[in-house]
């Protein structure tokens, strides 16, 4: 496939492709006249992604998944902590210094309507990465490579002249995927790439993504709140709650043997397409607390059905419990429901 021919294969190196070390991403608002408010959107997050691995990132809306995804791509200036990409510390690189790295890390967005410029043709959208990264590139080469990319994602060359509004949500998502892959990156953050799509189309897009992943030997941070899709796609899964990772394990272990009450509740909430299996679900009470004023101690304790007074005392550390499985809960005596 032509995408393969675009860049020489990356020189294999040792170690994980991405290492994130005690990352913090805070947002401040107010100041000056009004009281200064700080949202700790990502707080003290540490993890690694191996080469060719897909790490799932799940959690409720507002738990900080997108913020984390953007932070590791250095869209934002980090508040604290380190991001090491392929052995290189990128935490403090400037926009200009990051530029050559941009070709190696890309992103797919959730909203197929907001992520494509409505005034550009599909050809211009998919060609933009080529033009930005190699300003001297010839028109014919851009056209050829855009055509290749469009065919790879199941569209036709002729679609290059059309505008985004002429496509359905699923097709737009394919256009977004073509834009992310036209530079043949090594690392991809897929931020809820199928959440806005119908189930039938969801499957098409997931399969396409996985096909391209195999071809390019990609490493992916796969953000989703659909645990079923995550179970099918990911090698490992990290569960986030209010800006922190509360559990991380390989997919099988997490599904068969969840050790954090929040993970159990997430699994329990997934609807199952079998009316005879209407279960008694573990309903989480209420909403995610405001990240402006998270509860003291374990942030989940306000909704946790296993909470005990000790949970309010200190933030439980993300502790190793063997086999790469880590969890942030002080109780070891719980028998939690597995997903399957």
């Amino acid at each position: 496939m032509s995408i393969m021919a675009l860049t020489p294969p990356p020189i294999p190196r040792d170690g994980p492709l991405l290492r994130v070390d005690r990352l913090r991403q805070w947002f401040s608002s107010g100041g000056f006249m009004s009281p200064r408010l700080t949202v700790r959107a990502v707080e003290d997050v540490t993890f690694e992604i191996g080469r060719g691995e897909i790490l799932g990132l799940v959690g409720e809306s507002g738990s900080g998944k997108s913020t984390l995804g953007r932070a590791v791509l250095r869209v934002t200036d980090l508040t604290d902590g380190r991001v090491v990409f392929d052995g290189q510390d990128v935490s403090t690189l400037s926009k200009r210094q990051l530029r050559p790295l941009r070709a190696r890390m890309q992103m797919i967005f959730q909203d197929p309507f907001a992520s494509l410029n409505p005034r550009m043709t599909v050809g211009q959208i998919v060609g933009a990465p080529l033009r930005i990264q190699n300003p001297g590139i010839s028109r014919s080469e851009v056209e050829a490579r855009v055509g290749d990319a469009l065919r790879t994602v199941g569209l036709a060359d002729s679609h290059a002249e059309r505008y985004p509004h002429e496509f359905s949500g699923g097709q737009r998502q394919r256009i977004g995927i073509a834009r992310a892959f036209v530079l043949a990156p090594d690392f991809l953050v897929a931020d809820e790439p199928v959440s806005a799509l119908d189930v039938s189309i969801q499957a098409q897009v997931v399969n396409l993504l996985m096909e391209i992943k195999r071809k390019l030997d990609l490493t992916i941070l796969f953000i989703s709140h659909d645990l079923a899709v995550v179970g099918h796609v990911c090698d490992r899964v990290a569960v986030m709650y209010l800006g922190r990772i509360v559990e991380i394990a390989d997919t099988r272990t997490l599904f068969r043997n969840p050790r954090h009450p929040y993970t159990e509740a997430l699994f329990s909430a997934v609807p199952v397409a079998d009316p005879s299996r209407r279960r008694q679900r573990i309903l989480l009470k209420g909403d995610l607390p405001s990240p402006l004023a998270p509860p003291s101690g374990c942030a989940f304790r306000t909704r946790c059905r296993y909470a005990i007074p000790a949970c309010a005392e200190a933030v439980p550390p993300l502790a190793h419990i063997g086999g790469g499985h880590q969890k942030a809960c002080i109780r070891d005596d719980l028998a939690l429901q597995p997903a399957c």
């Binding site: 359905s168 699923g170 097709q171 189930v199 039938s200 189309i201 969801q202 499957a203 098409q204 997931v206 399969n207 996985m210 659909d226 645990l227 079923a228 899709v229 179970g231 099918h232 796609v233 997919t251 099988r252 599904f255 068969r256 699994f267 997934v270 199952v272 397409a273 997903a339 399957c340």
Partner: peptide, 23 residues
Amino acid sequence: LLRAVPTLTVSDGFVPLTSIPGT
């Protein structure tokens, strides 16, 4: 439609999800 709903399971390696082709 029914087959396209991914089930809450883990598989060894990626098994393509069942989709309805086309739109």
